[in-house]
């Protein structure tokens, strides 16, 4: 019969839709039950979510042009998903971000944002993709480590680029390891966590938080507190500046004195 055939055909179509629907809902349920990750900001306290909200506003105004409206990155800057709060602290508290011009390496500049604003943006970035974040927001706490251990670790891990006294050094093609005198404890710690530019990233399994605190302590001690026995440090660039002083000051003075005494009868 013509009508019976049509009905049967329709039923067949409907049943196949039902199967697809059933399969989809099953997969969906299973995914929600086992596979779906916890929402990042779900358990965050109210002030944290406020910070995320404020941070998002600041981000959209100051950062999204290059890094994209949804942290996805673009032609001007990399994606920020997964870089973590540490990266934000390092880049913004040292004034490297926002970037002024495309150079070989982002230079330190005067800081454009309040520390509180930086923390808000950091919270926003952290809330969307996670990543390493500072164990404490407090400079003193981050530099509360073992000085001697810090020194040994600094010489092993940091001095090869930043120089024995943290005076910085050159890398290839105009890149460089900056001097560490102007880096705050937060920036130093965040740099180890986030591994900016050419710097390696030191996860907590490579340098434990204690070791990172020790290094931060040593760098701060070296650049801020340590007295400088023996006179002017000559920039602490090693024998290069010493040789320059030997010639420019020493030999010049001695030849000058030779001229003077040579003119005496």
């Amino acid at each position: 019969m013509n009508s019976t055939a049509t009905v049967r055909k329709r039923r067949k179509q409907l049943s196949s839709y039902a199967v697809v629907l059933l399969a989809l809902s099953l997969v969906g349920t299973l995914y929600t039950a086992f596979g779906a990750p916890e929402g990042q900001a779900q358990d965050a306290p109210a002030n944290q979510s406020m910070a995320v909200k404020e941070g998002r506003e600041l981000y959209l105004t100051g950062c999204s042009t290059c890094h994209g409206l949804n942290l996805e990155g673009g032609s001007g800057g990399p994606s920020l998903i997964g870089v973590g709060a540490s990266s934000v602290v390092f880049q913004m508290e040292s004034g490297r971000m926002p970037l002024a011009a495309g150079t070989q390496q982002a230079p330190r500049k005067p800081v454009k944002y309040e520390i509180s604003e930086i923390d808000q943006i950091a919270a926003y970035i952290q809330a969307n993709g996670g990543g390493p974040e500072l164990p404490s927001a407090d400079n003193a706490d981050l530099a509360d480590g073992d000085l001697q251990l810090g020194g040994a670790l600094f010489r092993t891990n940091c001095a090869s680029c930043h120089n024995f006294a943290g005076s910085g050094g050159a890398l290839t093609y105009g890149k460089y390891a900056p001097e560490l005198k102007s880096a705050s404890a937060r920036v130093i710690y965040a740099a180890m966590q986030s591994g900016p530019e050419s710097m390696p990233r030191y996860g907590d399994n490579q340098l434990t938080p204690e070791e990172k605190r020790a290094i931060t302590r040593y760098v701060r001690y070296l650049t801020q507190e340590a007295d400088n026995p023996g006179g002017a440090g000559l920039g602490r660039y090693g024998p290069i500046s010493e040789g320059l002083v030997a010639w420019v000051v020493g030999i010049t003075a001695l030849v000058g004195l030779t001229l003077w005494i040579g003119a005496r009868a």
Binding site: A159, N163, G168, L234, R236, G238, P239, E242, W247
Partner: peptide, 27 residues
């Protein structure tokens, strides 16, 4: 008396696994 030269205490003890940037010989 006025100009520091070779601040050995900053370089630390020799360790073959370490090297400092700006390691140079004397002039």
């Amino acid at each position: 008396g006025l100009a520091q030269i070779n601040p050995v205490w900053l370089y630390g003890p020799y360790d073959a696994s370490q090297v400092s940037a700006g390691s140079q010989p004397d002039w």
